[in-house]
Amino acid sequence: MAEKKWMPRWFYQLASPRWCYGITGKLLPIFAPLALALLLGGTVWALLFAPADYQQGNSFRIIYIHVPSAILAQSCYMLMAIAGAIGLIWKMKVADMVAKSCAPIGASMALLALATGAIWGKPTWGSWWVWDARLTSMLILLFLYFGIMALHAAIEDATTAAQSTAVLALVGLVNIPIIKYSVEWWNTLHQPATFKLTERPAMPAEMWVPLLVMVLGFYCFFAVTLMLRLRHEILGRERRSGWVRELVEQR
């Protein structure tokens, strides 16, 4: 029996849609106010109190949307691929649903990062778009999200759709290191990474602390939207099971 214990118990419990619906219901009231507070606080701090950049003036403040959305677009892809792999290996329905719920959120984050980047690029680089390694790899990420969503929509059977998109997501995973290192491998116009685990950020603390708050706020916001989508997905797929009927009758 000892060899069966290498996975913690909560991992198996997460596999049950009913348990997962319950735990997300408890987590939502924690994450939703946290996301709201962090995003509101971070935005006010970033727009009103952070000092202006000595070269770019106030136009640099779009970094407080651009960087968090770009980070999130990549994390979301990672989560989608990992959840897809878990679904493929352990045939876990909830993992499939997490992967499915990730795709539209990630696509909108990638779109937001590209749009804010274009708005930022106009005053600083003088053009909306350059065919730069970082920008192109980010555009590929957006296309990958579109492809995954299209494949999901094309396959009727939910299990087959989840497995097929998981394979595609795993194949597309090669793009993530390319995005990450594009600013180091190629001579690009795009500046290098803002946050690194090993070094202190290149900007002063008054600038990067609100950015960190915004990044955390985006992550909390992502958690909230993911849980909402997941709960919706669970109810849709489990609509024939007893506990969902009971839940509906209680309302």
Partner: peptide, 22 residues
């Protein structure tokens, strides 16, 4: 991925073109 689908042709392009770019 699309072999079992009726209208695979257009979908293949959507799935594969991003990976062709590099």
């Amino acid at each position: 991925l699309t072999v079992g689908l009726r209208k695979g042709g257009m979908l293949i392009s959507l799935l594969v073109l991003p990976l062709y770019i590099p």
